[in-house]
Each structure stands twice: as C-alpha cells, then as structure tokens.
Design a binder for these strands. Structure first.
Lengths: 232, 232
DNA sequence: TATTTTACTTTTATAATTCAACTAAAAGAA
DNA sequence: TTCTTTTAGTTGAATTATAAAAGTAAAATA
C-alpha cells in the first residue's frame, strides 16, 4: 500500500464503492440493466452493477473498470450522479457509494457478455425490487438523466446511427414518462439543427414511411440554455 | 472499529474527506469563506473548509460537524455538489473528497467564531489562489448554486428577514454574474407569489424609498419547473 | 377506387419574454 | 417655492415560444 502523509489518520479510512445505473433503449422502451449480486449480504438478489473503488483509483476509473469487465465496452457515456453515505445503507457494513449512470446502445455486441454475468434488462415500469437503497439511486439517476436530456439531445448515446424523429420522440416520452406532442416535438428538434435528414425512409412503421435522420458531428459547447423551456 | 462482513476487503479502504464551499452575501457582494489550512501539506495556504469523514459517519454529517465547529451554526443550508477522486488531486495522499456548498447569512452571530479560525470572506472576483483542485470545486459549486437559484428563489437562505426587490435582484446579479433587467425581474419575482410586501420602506438607497419584502412561509413542492426559462 | 394508417405540416391561439419608455416620490439646489 | 435629480416602481407594445388541434401526404390493403 502507498505511504502518505495522512497515514496517522488510518482510523478514518472507509470502504468506497461505485454503483452504476445502466440505461439502454430497445423496442421503444427505456430499460435498465440489473444484476444478480454475487457477494454476501443479499447474494443472488437484484442489484445495480457495483464494485469497490480500489486504493489509488478514481471513482470514475472504477466505474469504467466494472462496466468494461461486464459489457466489453470502453467508450461508455458516464455521468456522476450523487454520493450516498448513510452508515446503515448497506447491512454488510458502512460503505460510501458514488453513483454513476451509463448510457449504452443495446444493439451493441455487449449482449452476450452481459448474459454471462446473470444480468437482465428491465423496463423502468417493471423493475424488480432492488437491494439496499438502490431504488433511490435509480430515481436519482433518472432525475439526472432528465436534466441532461433537457440540455442536450441525448439520443446520440442511446439510438442507432439512423433513426426517425418518431423514434427519438418516443425515447423522450420514455425518459420523461409523458407524451410529447408529435408536431411540436418535431418542430423543436429540427429548429436545433443538430440532425441531418437522410434520403432513406423507414417503411416499417407506416404506409407513408418516415425519413431517417442522423446526428450531425457534435459542435463545441452546444446548448447552454435548456432546450425545453417549460415542457414541449 | 466496527466489524463488518466486508473486512476481508480491508485493502480497498480509502481516505474520504468533505470540503465545503461556504457562500455568504454582504454589502451587495456574493462572498466565499476560505480558511488557512492547519495541517500539512500546504499548511497555512488558503483552502476550503474541509475535514475527514470519520468511520461510521455520513458525508453530510461530517460536513455539518465541521461547519458547526467553525460557525456555531447548525441549521445551515447544505447541498451536495460532486465527488472528486483523482488519486493525485492531493499531494499528501490519495483522498476522495465529497463537496458540499453551504449558504450562510453573514449577519449571523457566527462572525466571531469564524475569526478565531483564521477564516476570511472573499468576493468571487477577488478570490485568492486556493490549494489543490479547490478552484475547480468553487466553479462547480457556483454552477450548482446557479442551477438551484433557477429552480427556487434562493434568497431565503442568504438575505436578512426583510429586504428590497432591488437587493434580491442584486443577489441574482452576483450569482449569475450578469445584470438582470429591473422591470422584468420584479415582474417575474412578484408573479411567483412567494414574497409578501411590508408597509415599511428602505429610505437609505433612494429618495422615493423602496418597499421591504419578506418571504411567505415556504409552500410544499414549490416550483418544479425552472423559474427563469432562458434568462430574465 | 375507397379506406386506413401513420408521417409530417400548418394554423391559430395563448403565454412568456424582452425592451424601452413611462410615472412616483422625496431630497436638495436655485 | 419651484426645478432638478435620483432611484423605485409601472406599463405596454413587439417579439418569440409554446400548446393544441386540424390539416395534408403517401402507400398498403380491402
């Protein structure tokens, strides 16, 4: 273990963990990846993806490490959410946990790896009971995701290369758990000029067909004001 | 020290600290309370108020404990900002710090206690160089304070009992580092119906005098949408 | 050929925001 | 006494954003 000038305060050292709320979007549903916990206590119960923060490791590195191990992906979008530290939150001992949320494209090749770890995608609505305070963590991550989604069009991280406006709107419906007006949503999104229309159409959802769009390359400092002033 | 089922992971234990960005408002200026650090390394340099998170203590309790010791106040408004964990952020050793910001009414009796601890109020503009990554922490706290201020009228925590609209506007000018339009600001604030006009006037700032206002008792769930849609 | 379905557009009404000019009141100067 | 100055406070027109609803377009299918 590393020497440090603080070694005299050894008594204060704490267990620190990370927990990841992993969001994905598939079949018009916002989903969440949860795991069967592999250590006691609560072994076998549904849990968020977690892991220890090792000595001399940042919490973000720890989060990326556990995500990489599980999904094979190393370019995941991560955002820190909140730190939970109630000494009684984990019956196994007093553990401080730093929460992150991750956005993953479900169509990625991660699917197989994920299966090996006893993980499963659940929709927000049908989430099973999670261990400890993980329900609270999920709610907090959703809030943070909503905040982020109202400052930038989040689809870049969750949608495939090409997608229809209807599909993007459906993603927002899912995130905010409400129905956005199709006309107003389309008008707003297109006014932001971040999407580029392709000539190809998706003919699977309607007779008329819906144009595919893709994101333009990202601009620096895009959107400093909220996109949606009150709501769409 | 408490026994826990995790003791086998002893190697992973980490130093965890809290740092507090303490905001105050005085003489039309948003100010920040900084301290002369009392332990090595960087002893004697300007620093945020910090302290260890002890075994079996939550980070918020730790923050309240150090604030109480320093200011004598125990009803301070606290909000968690972010957790910093780069192993090299503190040259004294690898320390994870959980950041909070606090809002304090400078007219409180805390003034004397604060002096005893070698603390000093600085305006945001004239802040001295702070140790480690504390400059980054200050910037992050300001962002969080701005976010909070755009969801609720923050003055309740920083202004005296009675104050003029001009004074509240000046506080917002300070927080957002820009000039709000007097007419629009007044219209907006009064439309929120959180203030109550007193019959008394402040005659010190103008010939005409400006009415004093005070906050109405706080309503449950006040403001779920941002108060300022784009800007005032 | 008419109907159905869903993408997509347009219109109109309402509300929020900005900008700028206005009035009010009282102290102090002429 | 009257005029000027100063800052508080008000008002309204112009602009922009948002909401709601009804419209059109295109192609598969009955």
């Amino acid at each position: 273990m590393n020497k440090s000038i603080y070694d005299q305060y050894q008594e204060n050292k704490r267990f620190v963990a990370v927990d990841c709320v992993i969001f994905g979007y598939e079949e018009e549903q916002l989903k969440l990846l949860v795991f069967e916990r592999d250590i006691e206590p609560a072994k076998g119960e549904w849990s968020l993806l977690g892991g220890w923060v090792n000595a001399n490791e940042s919490t973000e590195s720890a989060a990326r490490r556990v995500l990489q191990k599980l999904t094979g992906l190393d370019d995941v979008y991560l955002e820190q959410v909140h730190t939970f530290s109630d000494p009684n939150r984990d019956p196994g001992g007093s553990v401080i946990t730093v929460e992150y949320y991750a956005l993953i494209k479900i169509d990625d090749k991660a699917a197989n790896l994920i299966k090996d770890y006893g993980a499963k995608w659940f929709t927000i609505a049908a989430l099973p009971k999670l261990i400890f305070d993980h329900d609270v963590l999920v709610e907090k991550a959703l809030e943070k995701l909503r905040l982020r989604s109202s400052y930038e069009i989040i689809g870049r991280k969750l949608l495939p290369e090409k997608f229809t406006i209807t599909r993007l709107r459906n993603l927002y419906d899912q995130i905010f758990q409400r129905q956005f007006d199709p006309g107003n949503f389309r008008k707003k999104i297109l006014s932001l000029k971040v999407l580029e229309r392709l000539e190809e159409k998706d003919m699977s959802e309607s007779r008329k067909g819906a144009f595919y769009f893709k994101f333009k390359p990202k601009q620096e400092g895009e959107f400093s004001d909220p996109i949606f002033k009150r709501s769409i």
